[in-house]
Amino acid sequence: MRPGDCGIGLRAPHVAEVLEHRPVVGWLEVHAENYMGGGTAIRTLERVRAEYPLSVHGVGLSIGSAEGIDTAHLERLARLVERLQPVLVSEHLSWSVTGGAYLNHLLPLPYTDEALAVIADNVARAQDRLGCRLLVENPSGYLRFRGSSMSEPEFLNALARRTGCGLLCDVNNVYVTCANLGGDPAAWLDALDRAAVAEIHLAGHAVNNADGRSILIDDHGSPVADPVWELFAHALGRFGPVPTLIEWDTDLPALGVLLGEAAKARAYVSKAADVVAA
C-alpha cells in the first residue's frame, strides 16, 4: 500500500462481489469483531487478504476503560492480527466496557491526566501483545465533560507521545464533533501532531433534530458531505498523502458507490500532491 492509496470499508454484503470481480481499490478495512468467530467469514476474508492490503479496525477493545482492557478480547484480536497480517491495526479514543458490560458504542472520555494515564496503559498493553503500532481514532462527539483539562487533539498528541501509537484522523468525526460541541474543524486538524497521523477516515453523517437544535450524527449512511471533502483537502495539505478510507455502514449501497467515493478521495490526494509539486 502506498501513502495516498484510498480504500473502502469492506462489509459482509460486498465480500462475494469483491472476490468475484476484484475491483481496483487501494486497500480494504474490516471490523475486527466481525471476524472473531470460526465460521466461513474468516476463511473468506483470508481469500480477500491474498488479493488486497487489509486493515483491521477494532471497535470493541475499549482502550478507554478504567477497569483495563479485557484480556480475552485482546487475545482474540491478537490471534486475528497474526492470522491476517494486516497493514494497519486501529482502535478508538473511547470506551465501551464498564463492570464487564459491553455498551455497544464509542463512548466519550473526559480529557484529563487520569484518563490519559488509563488509556496510555491500555494502549501500551495492546501494542505489546499485538506486536505492532496501534492507530487511535478520534470519535464523533456529542457531549463534553466539565472536568476535561485538554482539548481532544492535545489529548491524542499526548497519547501518541507517551505510547508511540499512531493516530487515525477521522475527518468526518472532526466535522461532526466541532459542529456538535463548538470549535473550528480546520483548527482542530492544525492542532494534531502531523507526524503521528497514519490513516484518514471519511464517511457521511446525518443531520438530526434534538430539542429544536440540529445535531450531527456520525451514521456512515450517506456520501461524504461537501464540507467534509473540503476539510479532507485541508487535512491532506497538513498531513500529506495518508492512506484514506471510505466508511459506509447504514443503508449500505452498491459496491460501486463506495468505489466511486474512494476514487473521489484519490482525486483529492492527487490534487494535493500537484499543489505540493507546484
Binding site: 455498551l103 455497544n104 458504542h105 463512548l107 466519550p108 473526559p110 456529542y142 457531549l143 463534553r144 465533560f145 466539565r146 472536568g147 463548538g182 434534538a210 430539542d211 437544535r213 445535531i215 450524527i217
Partner: peptide, 25 residues
C-alpha cells in the same frame, strides 16, 4: 453534573448515545 450543558441539555446529549446503544443491539 459532569456534562457541559451548552445549548443542548445533558439529557438530550446522553439520549444520542443511548439511542445508538439500543438500536444497534
Amino acid at each position: 453534573s459532569e456534562i457541559i450543558d451548552d445549548g443542548l441539555g445533558a439529557s438530550a446529549r446522553l439520549a444520542v448515545y443511548r439511542h445508538h446503544v439500543f438500536t444497534s443491539l
